[in-house]
């Protein structure tokens, strides 16, 4: 139970960062933390007590295994996260070229 709670706190840390930080790079890092928390949650859901990695090989005894599907999902989600981060960093670089700052409070030409 405590592990789930810690995982939830990690998620909240990420959300807090996205909502309160003013620096573009810190926002991007917070989104990364949010992503790690979600991936960790998926892995935790797959975990079974006293079980081994889910690979069957010859001559191995059949024993309880962890659920392999969430692990596959996490791999996909990590790749997607890489894409998100790359896109955000590219946009941050372009924003720096245009505005000469990473401060989100100074990047506000759009309003109304």
């Amino acid at each position: 139970m405590i592990v789930y709670l810690l995982c939830f706190i990690l998620l909240l840390v990420g959300l807090y960062g996205v909502l309160t930080k003013r620096d573009l790079i810190k926002i991007i890092l917070s989104i990364g933390i949010l992503g790690y928390a979600v991936n960790l949650l998926l892995i935790l859901f797959a975990y079974r007590n006293n079980s081994i990695y889910p690979i069957l090989s010859k001559g191995k005894e059949i024993s309880p295994m962890v659920d392999p599907l969430p692990q596959a999902l996490v791999l996909t989600s990590i790749v997607i996260e890489l894409g998100t981060t790359a896109m955000l960093v590219a946009l941050a670089v372009k924003l720096f070229e245009k505005y000469n700052t990473f401060d989100i409070t100074e990047i506000r030409r759009l309003k109304g």
Partner: peptide, 13 residues
């Protein structure tokens, strides 16, 4: 770029 960054942050969350 500003709009796309906002959209990307909201979209990822």
């Amino acid at each position: 770029f500003e709009a796309a960054f906002k959209y990307a942050v909201m979209g990822s969350v």
